[in-house]
Write a protein that binds this DNA or RNA. Structure first.
Length: 366
DNA sequence: CTCCAGGTGGCGA
DNA sequence: TCGCCACATGGA
């Protein structure tokens, strides 16, 4: 099959529901797999666990392209990489599954299907639109004046406009970001993964004749009843973090922490932040992350070490030179809202965040 | 060996 | 309010 033939063929988005998980079988974005410089076929189906872990809080939709599978898996630049990355990091079974997919694609089972009618349009099921926040238009994310005020930055940023912020489960987001304090992404992912494996319900799914094992993210009740010492094996042996997670889970399980009501956009952002930060182990930054990724509050603007850095470098904030105390945090938050659209400050901030990490810091991990 | 990773909270000046 | 420090591990 020639490359041109492959390029013409795309398949509709298909999806199906397995318990809490959506597994998407997709060929939508005209992604092609290529190994050793030889195209072996269109990516027939990438198994994407749609309801993935909150640290993977972004998703990039790019134009049709050919990707080198090895390069894309490890260079971290492409849409395809992101999909694989979800699966590879968390499910060893899927590490075996992907090569299997490739074999199937390269064999007789591969078929070219009908073209996709809509990718960003209404043809996509509503939950997909919602999950990928497809209703957010990049035109509104940055104020009109932004490209005039920061022309060089604008060029860098444009590469990141297809980035979507995912609307994820609030509890899962809360616990996951509690694991994300002052350590690298590698360890953060490991912790979340261990929590799921240790306390999450096991689900076996038959997919294309193969058994695929998933672990649901643990329920609040399950974590609330956990032993701190045992749970600390999942939190980098950090007893304090383990205890905080258990207390937070107890709060949710007992209804003291009502994440659902916090999702009400009538409540002011500062009130959401205040209530979340009442939990031990949750400061302003984690609270804003929960709001942004778990509560769909795209106005929430989490400030971490990277954000602080780009506020100083790109926007000449002298406040960013100070240490990140709660007081400094609030000032930086105000400053950022002055040159961003306050309603979507967090959405813009996340685009800036990834642009900073990749283009300036040259970090590989998403 | 040192420094830094998508922080938080406790402490003393 | 502000500057340190512990918390814990691992990769560069």
């Amino acid at each position: 099959m020639s490359y041109q033939e492959l390029k013409r063929g795309t398949a509709p988005l298909r999806y199906f529901l397995c318990k809490k998980y959506y597994i998407i079988s997709l060929q939508v974005f005209n992604v092609f797999i290529r190994t050793n410089n030889v195209s072996i076929g269109q990516c027939g189906f990438l198994c994407l666990k749609l309801k993935q872990y909150p640290l993977y809080n972004t998703f990039i939709i790019k134009e049709p392209r050919v990707v080198d599978i090895k390069q894309s898996l490890f260079s971290g630049q492409t849409f395809l990489w992101n999909i694989h990355k979800f699966d590879f990091d968390y499910y060893s079974t899927l590490i075996d599954t992907i090569p299997l997919f490739i074999r199937q694609i390269s064999g007789n089972e591969f078929k070219v299907n009908a073209p996709v009618k809509e990718i960003k349009g209404v043809a996509l099921p509503q939950f997909i639109r919602h999950y990928f926040s497809l209703e957010i238009d990049i035109e509104n994310v940055f104020p009109e004046s932004f490209s005039r005020l920061y022309p060089e930055l604008w060029v860098l940023l444009s590469e990141y406009f297809p980035l979507r912020i995912l609307r994820q489960d609030p509890f899962e987001t809360m616990i996951s970001f509690m694991c994300a304090q002052g350590i690298g992404m590698h360890l953060i992912r490991k912790q979340v993964s261990l929590l799921a494996q240790t306390y999450g319900e096991k689900t076996t799914v038959t997919f294309k004749g193969r058994e695929v094992v998933f672990h649901n993210f643990p329920t609040a009740e399950r974590l609330a009843a956990a032993d701190p010492f045992v749970l600390s094996r999942c939190t980098n042996n950090n007893r304090l973090r383990a205890a905080n997670i258990i207390m937070a889970a107890q709060g949710v399980a007992e209804g003291r922490v009502d994440l659902k009501s916090l999702g009400n956009h009538q409540i002011s952002l500062s009130e959401v932040r205040r209530r979340l930060a009442q939990n031990s182990g949750i400061g302003f930054k984690i609270a804003d992350c929960i709001a942004l990724f778990g509560l769909g509050r795209f106005d929430a603007f989490p400030i971490d070490t990277h954000v602080k850095q780009y506020l100083g470098k790109w926007f000449n904030s002298t406040t960013a030179l100070r240490s990140l105390s709660p007081a400094t945090y609030l000032i930086l938050d105000e400053e950022a809202r002055a040159f961003l659209n306050p309603e979507l400050a967090g959405y813009a901030g996340h685009i800036l965040f990834h642009c900073w990490r990749k283009e300036v810091k040259k970090l590989q991990s998403f």
